[in-house]
Design a protein around this nucleic acid. Sequence first.
DNA 1: GGTGTAGGTTTCCTTTAGGAAACCAGTTTC
DNA 2: GAAACTGGTTTCCTAAAGGAAACCTACACC
Lengths: 121, 121
Amino acid sequence: MAEKENLDKAVCSVHHMAVRDTMDILNGKWKIRIIASLSFHKKRFMELIADIDGIAAKMLSKELQELEMNGLVTRSVLNTKPITVEYELTPYGHTLKPVINEMAAWGMKHRKKVMKGSALK
Amino acid sequence: MAEKENLDKAVCSVHHMAVRDTMDILNGKWKIRIIASLSFHKKRFMELIADIDGIAAKMLSKELQELEMNGLVTRSVLNTKPITVEYELTPYGHTLKPVINEMAAWGMKHRKKVMKGSALK
DNA sequence: GGTGTAGGTTTCCTTTAGGAAACCAGTTTC
DNA sequence: GAAACTGGTTTCCTAAAGGAAACCTACACC
């Protein structure tokens, strides 16, 4: 029936739009990995550099700014000598953890699958 | 205790690696959206073009090839006149649905939040 | 006053992603 | 035999992403 079809299409397009919205915020090579890194503990700039393999200071700085603008991360300058800066997920940033965790879960299964595949060759 | 710390680090780095593996496969602007589009029904080339707003034939073709190489999508040429080609998620491709669905869920919550925010201004 | 550390920014450069449009092959319909 | 449709590929081009290295500020230590 036509009504059911239309409903299907509507559900579908809302789904697509939502996926797209999420990807627009998590765009680029690094954001997801930064959030993943912060999802365990808050970290300082240098700790993030060390933790996220391959990222350059420029990119980290830029991506953190975007995440901060989107309300996912907070930046706090600590009153230490020399100053240290802590980055932390906001409560809103933590709502992305299910997304990250599903990615991690899939990545682990995938790694196992790939390793099994290459062992069979 | 040092053992607990080491365990933490190990868990953490496995998590990071898994997230990275997933992102390596879903790289680029389009793959996630293609999978999202196929997660409801199999679709033909032209249907995908229509469904995924903004994608060009070149990109769709290229991304579908990569997805096929990674065993996430199958391509079947149907014996119709003119020939039509159907793309479908493999069972393995379907295992990505939880990831996509979490993204969609977050995207919907985010859209509501943004709309509420702009209404308050 | 030289060295070191934290946290960046700036500059310069290369690579890649991605878009637009033209083109093509096979088949059908007019 | 011209036009139209599907499912692409090819070419050409631009914009954006990203990397490396130098530089900068503020403070501390010695």
